[in-house]
Design a protein around this nucleic acid. Sequence first.
DNA 1: TTGAAAGCGCTAACAC
DNA 2: GTGTTAGCGCTTTCAA
Lengths: 346, 346
Amino acid sequence: MATRERPRRVTIADVARHAGVSTTAVSKVLRSAYGVSPAMRERVKAAIEELGYRPHAAARAMRGRTFTIGVLLPDLRNPFFPDILDGLSEQLAGTDYQVIMVQGGPDVTAETRAIDALVDRQVDGILMIAPRVRRVRLEDVAAQMPTVVLGLHEKSALYDVVHDDDELGAELVVRHLIGLGHRRIAHIGYTPGSRERAVGVLDAIRAETYARVMREHGLQSQIAVARAAYTEEAGYRGARELLERSPRPTAIFAGADLAALGALRALHEAGLSVPADVSLAGYDNTRLAALSSISLTSVDQDGAVMGRTAGRLLLERIEGRTSSVRFSVTPSLVPRRSTGPPAPEA
Amino acid sequence: MATRERPRRVTIADVARHAGVSTTAVSKVLRSAYGVSPAMRERVKAAIEELGYRPHAAARAMRGRTFTIGVLLPDLRNPFFPDILDGLSEQLAGTDYQVIMVQGGPDVTAETRAIDALVDRQVDGILMIAPRVRRVRLEDVAAQMPTVVLGLHEKSALYDVVHDDDELGAELVVRHLIGLGHRRIAHIGYTPGSRERAVGVLDAIRAETYARVMREHGLQSQIAVARAAYTEEAGYRGARELLERSPRPTAIFAGADLAALGALRALHEAGLSVPADVSLAGYDNTRLAALSSISLTSVDQDGAVMGRTAGRLLLERIEGRTSSVRFSVTPSLVPRRSTGPPAPEA
DNA sequence: TTGAAAGCGCTAACAC
DNA sequence: GTGTTAGCGCTTTCAA
């Protein structure tokens, strides 16, 4: 530790002494608990103000609440997540709760570490966005603290789930492409790893739905999936892989806008134009998709509503609810200029 | 609190009992401190493994370290920040340190709250990215814990600073535009608020440099600044404001790529093409700028290096360094298709 | 080399 | 309505 003299923090004892009351009284005022006279409340509040006192979260964590909500974010680069965080913050505004975030990273090991970090820091509630760890691990966490999982469809007795109707969303995209006349429609998404969960995650559902709708239209022989995470880089590699096939797809459905941007880069590099040579669709309807020079067909899911709901469910659980809840938002297709009819076969 | 039976956490006492040693011994093993025999170390390690023990960060915070680095992020949507975080994580990989992030939000009040949250949670070190709070506040925090500030140029005796050479970067852009033949070059950036710091912040420096270079080329009468934060929305509004002027600028230098994207949206809406009608340049050289359909001229600054350096400086301070350090990276211009010669005057 | 015990700042049960 | 006090899980003297 640095040896420089660090000013001692103002503690509850300092406030008590300054106000001429007991520490209990101060603690009660802080938590707006019963059993304090208005006069005492005023004196304590004045002392807190004068001394610039703030509760020490770590000390609080030893006994009661930390007034902290922990969020697991899989990837800082995905522009859809800020929408969720905005919703969460909105729901938490006006409460004493603070949000802290950890980044999950690329593999399950990193994600596990990130989740542990939140648990070890004794947050009052935890929101996991599209976690990849196994279900047992989630239930293990949920048994210890109020938990909401976003992006998972499987219901659990221990935690709440908030998700988009990914089946509907994926179906809208694939039907849209088929409706435009495409048959060789490929998909980029869903990478299962060895220690990861394989079912019920949003990307798995989008990929399965893609395959199902293709089969329903007699296009099972055209099914082509490039397994890739929802990142720009993976989308790029996925598209390159798909473009090597012969004949190449006339349309690509990327499971996320971020992956679609990577695919777009690959398409440009290959000298292909969108949608004349290849149609491209994403998912999430991020602000980037709406940019006129990109104009990406995408699926809109209301991230702010999901974030708000997750926040509300967490607060409810913190207040004592133990039954579990499932909340789903309905997505809608936003067609833009990146999709169009396929070029007539040569 | 929820009333459901929560499983009690495994504590150091459980480990001690299981291994048949004292809690002191366990604590020493955990911190790899002196005074434990190899035999005891092994027994303790085995017990930790068997019981799945993890240290309780909150309890640790009461006495020693939390092994946590706190990061203040002004805005989750700015695609440049993940580069910094990648560098930081890389530097911290292999140590026991975990990164937690808080979002600063739009105003100084929100940012102050976010910083307080980190301080109250007793992180071992704090990295503030482009903070807007006053200098006193920064020094107040730095007096309490190891602090590194990113994006501020002013040196302090209490904290380290890591920044890009924003003067050079802005100069490169403005000279580039002048070199192309532009004279009516406008700038989007730098919004000072009432309670905010007004000097030494990266956006202020970019704005000042823009004005200086304009003057140096005898273009002081052409100086036009739309005051806006580095967000998409603010960039959009800033560009709209600039386009209302008559005659309108032939080139716009946005202080950040994110703001440039907003400006791009405004330009498209106004039916103007880039660069034929208006040239557009950004700053940060984010991946989006490189996208072929955007192809934005920008300034590259190495975020990963800044993040790594910030991490190294924090670890050094945690280990006891008290002298303060300043680290600067050198930016370079990346010209792309969004800038070109101005259209000949009608 | 080992362990007993004090105490970090706070909350909550309890006594007054 | 108010204050006393026993811990929460850990680190750190200090004594054995």
